[in-house]
């Protein structure tokens, strides 16, 4: 796997540095970096993995034609997944649930927590739209039985119903439920569940690769001065601080 390879290279450098504590100049460092061979195809795969996981279908399609990299997942399913995610983000939770069930009826049947969160989001949307009676009926009909099945659901349900007790919901203690961030949280939970059901990693590999890079640099900091990457967006090599 390419990412592990890169980190292993970093670890190698770190290892060889551990004994000699001398400062590594930018030239030396770049020379060493030149010896690190990373296959173009591996880089492309990483990029494709990011596009596909994050759901950039058009970009993935373009990238496929330009680089000849095959995505590890059917692009059509990405569209479906994105449609679900978008529906939750726009507050059309019922629509999202139906789409998930069309995609794979197993997901919500075997994932009670996710199902509860979607239903909870549905109720939040009803409250947001001022449909109080409908919200109450929905809570009784759909959410209360789930609360009986699981203690932690019951607590979340109580928090949600508390929204109804306040005149000014935006300023109440549970007001954050009405926040857009709550929608995004639910949307990303559905997104992850669909990816897992398709046997796909739920997170792209690129961010964890960057995390590993920072980790490796932190480890190395204790043993040597070297040209560090501080700005990840430019990946500029700083001069070693002596």
């Amino acid at each position: 796997m390419s990412i592990f390879w890169v980190v292993r290279q970093l670890a190698h450098i770190q290892e060889s540095m551990a004994t000699s504590k001398k400062v590594i100049t930018k030239e030396e460092w770049e020379k060493k970096l030149k010896d690190v061979k990373i296959r173009k195809e591996d880089m492309n795969k990483l990029v494709m993995n990011f596009l596909v996981t994050e759901g950039y279908v058009d970009a993935a399609e373009k990238f496929r034609t330009e680089s000849g990299t095959e995505p590890d997942i059917d692009l059509a399913t990405i569209m479906d997944r994105m449609a679900v995610k978008k529906a939750v983000q726009c507050g059309n939770v019922e629509d999202a649930i139906e789409k998930v069930n069309d995609l794979n009826p197993e997901i919500l049947d075997t994932n009670p927590q996710l199902f509860f969160h979607l239903q909870q989001q549905r109720m939040i949307e009803l409250i947001r739209n001022g449909k109080i009676e409908e919200a109450l009926e929905f809570a009784q009909e759909e959410l209360a039985p789930r609360g009986e099945e699981n203690q932690s659901f019951l607590e979340e349900l109580e928090r949600t119903v508390a929204l109804l007790a306040f005149e000014d919901v935006s300023n109440c203690p549970v007001g954050e439920l009405l926040d857009i961030s709550q929608r995004l949280k639910t949307a990303s939970e559905v997104n992850a569940a669909i990816l897992t059901s398709q046997s796909h990693e739920k997170d792209p590999k690129l961010p964890s690769l960057l995390k590993m890079l920072i980790w490796a640099q932190n480890q190395l900091d204790e043993k040597a001065a070297y040209p560090r990457i501080n700005d990840l967006t430019s990946a500029h090599l700083e001069d070693p601080a002596v």
């Binding site: 919500l108 009670p112 199902f115 039985p145």
Partner: peptide
């Protein structure tokens, strides 16, 4: 059938 499916998935009761 689709309606029934959407009603019962995740809903034991």
């Amino acid at each position: 059938l689709r309606e029934l499916k959407n009603q019962i998935i995740g809903n034991r009761t």
